[in-house]
Amino acid sequence: MSTILASGLPSVVRSAPAVYASRTCRETLRVMFQHPESKCIVVCNSVNEPVGLLMCERFFLKATGRLGMDHFYRESITKLMNCKPLITDISASPDNVRAEAMNRPEPMRNDCIIITSNGKFAGVVYPSDLPQPE
């Protein structure tokens, strides 16, 4: 039996930077560069409830895309975030979370999973950290 099954999601939750939904892409890009170890940025509302997700690699590619940085910098981060990320409570079963993650559309299967505690942002889990089916 693996330790993740014994101790649940809390044993694999990682920290991740969060920004408010009112931020611009420029402000969010700064946060991304301040946290180069993170694969994602969670977008939260004013009471720390997650409302969206940015995967850093995709976000950076959009930021350096052909529309030009000037246009991009002024945009609200809500225009680029995934508005329907996988969000689950920290008490959820890792097996159930993994099944939900694998049910997402192919391009999103490796996106981080947002973890909440009492509805508030608590961290993220990478799909690769979840137990593989036996």
Rank of each mutant, 00 (worst) to 15 (best):
R26F: 10
N118E: 14
V47E: 08
G8H: 03
R58E: 15
E134T: 11
C40T: 06
E100S: 11
P94H: 07
T24C: 11
S76Y: 08
L80V: 11
R23V: 09
G123C: 07
L86S: 02
A99Y: 04
T64H: 07
K79V: 02
I114T: 06
R30L: 14
I90N: 01
T28C: 05
P107N: 09
G123E: 00
I87G: 02
C40A: 15
P36T: 07
L5V: 00
K84F: 02
K120A: 13
Q132N: 11
T78Y: 03
I113L: 03
T3R: 15
M32C: 13
F72E: 11
C25L: 10
S91V: 12
N110V: 00
T3N: 12
D70W: 06
D95M: 12
V13S: 04
S22Y: 08
R109T: 04
V13R: 05
D70R: 14
R98N: 09
A101L: 04
R26A: 14
G123F: 05
P127I: 06
I114P: 03
Y20K: 13
E75K: 11
R104V: 04
F72H: 07
M1R: 14
S93V: 01
G123I: 08
I90S: 06
A99P: 00
L80S: 13
F121D: 04
K84N: 07
C112E: 09
N48E: 14
L29R: 04
V51Y: 02
R66M: 11
A18W: 01
T88M: 08
C25D: 08
A101G: 06
G68Q: 05
N103C: 14
E37P: 05
P133W: 10
E57N: 13
C83G: 10
K84T: 10
L54M: 10
F72L: 14
C112N: 10
A99Q: 08
C56Q: 07
I87W: 03
D129V: 10
P105W: 06
P85H: 07
I4G: 03
T88D: 00
V97W: 01
P36M: 13
I87H: 03
G65Y: 11
P131D: 07
V42L: 06
V51W: 02
P10S: 06
F60P: 00
S128A: 12
R109K: 15
A16P: 05
M81P: 05
R109H: 06
T78V: 13
A63K: 00
D95V: 15
L29N: 03
N82M: 11
C44G: 11
P107Q: 08
S128R: 10
A101P: 08
P127R: 01
A6C: 03
M108P: 00
C83K: 12
E106H: 14
I41W: 01
